[in-house]
Design a protein around this nucleic acid. Structure first.
Lengths: 217, 217
DNA sequence: TAAAATATTGACACGCATTATAAATATATT
DNA sequence: AATATATTTATAATGCGTGTCAATATTTTA
């Protein structure tokens, strides 16, 4: 990395740190570009040079955190592809829950910005991941062979993203949000489960929404 | 209505009309309070006096339209409570689809505003409606008697609202959005269906996501 | 009809994200 | 060491939603 790039990365880090500090100290509403520049000790223009926009700064903050999120998916024993799917969901909850207000603020700010590009990238990534996981489940015989894994994965990804939006708006806590998604995923997966996985999924479904709430045993 | 109230209502109508005109002509991004005031031929302050905020103007636009939405739910034959649930969904699609970009802009703008009160009211109303419809289905024996209708209705309402958010963000068309919701509703309802409704629901489910995509017959 | 209550207006200000411009400064290349 | 290039800086400007407040117009009340 050239000295020029080093200096840029140093400034980027300072700006990220200042942004995080402001959000943690006074809340996302207090994060303005002027204050950010002042606290990071750079000019107003610099964050625009180095990130692009306010939303891009926040996206960088989220990306930084997601480096810590990825290993979390592996935290749960991937005894099966479907267990891995559900484990990822649990990992998301664990990760966001330990710092819920901080992440909610960032997520909401990104979502309410008119910065379409970055959002679409995140949506695409989530859907692709979901599709891959569903495809693996089918490949391992946990779902019936004729399952349209692309459609089912897309359905699951969208369900997660949609409900995360309600988390960002403050209507659901992250745990409510994950419970809702889990229920949606399980209900859908159950319709495609192969014989040997069906019973286990039913148990998981009961666990999510209560025995009295599901009775198709 | 006193003459004073008449004048206010007249101005309100002019402002609504101007807002609609700007949105239709140049898109929601061009709707600023300054331009709105100019086009409605009132002062910049007047929309604030008469509505409260920009978001309130948009909410008024949506409310105005929703008067036409309500009868749509009755458009579909309510042969059963569940048919009525699904019919309402179809009604929402029909209504928004005939003017998709116009409504999408308004919806997105309201959702991305920090006007929490009105949004919460809308969310509450949707969830309550869903709960009532699910309760009616249970009362008529279409769902098993031990179904937790409050939880299931809430689940369905949130699923709809969450996906509508993705419509507002531009990630889904209204028809994709309704298809996703329909699938979620059907998958959940199927787990609570009584014997005599189960077969019909399965058919509806197939219709939504394709035969190859659901195979638990 | 005079007085009081109320609504609208106008000109202003604030803080916001973002962009433009040009000067100053650091780095890279020759 | 001199030149060329990239980046940051300072400053100002644009347009945005919203707020203040006094002045003015209109309606209601006495």
């Amino acid at each position: 990395m050239s000295r020029r790039e080093e200096a840029k990365e140093f400034n980027r880090a300072r700006i990220r740190a200042a942004a995080e500090d402001i959000i943690r100290r006074d809340g996302i509403a207090q994060l303005s570009m002027r204050r950010l520049a002042e606290q990071a000790d750079v000019s107003l223009r610099t964050p625009y040079n180095l990130f692009g926009s306010k939303a891009d700064v926040l996206i960088a903050l989220l990306d930084e955190a997601e480096c810590q999120l990825s290993p979390l998916a592996d935290m749960y024993p991937a005894s099966s592809a479907i267990a891995r799917l559900l484990g990822t969901l649990a990992g998301i909850e664990t990760f966001f829950a330990h710092d819920e207000e901080y992440f909610r603020g960032i997520y909401a700010a990104i979502m309410t910005s008119d910065h379409h590009g970055a959002r679409e990238a995140g949506v695409g990534r989530t859907i692709t991941t979901a599709q891959q996981m569903v495809a693996r489940a089918a490949a391992q015989g946990e779902l019936r062979a004729d399952t349209d894994t692309a459609a089912l994965g897309r359905y699951c990804g969208i369900a997660l993203l949609a409900v995360l939006g309600m988390w960002g708006s403050g209507f659901l806590s992250i745990s409510q949000c994950i419970a809702q998604t889990r229920r949606t995923w399980l209900a859908a997966l159950l319709h495609h489960a192969s014989e040997q996985t069906r019973a286990g999924l039913l148990d998981a479904y009961y666990e999510t929404c209560g025995k009295g709430d599901a009775n198709d045993r």
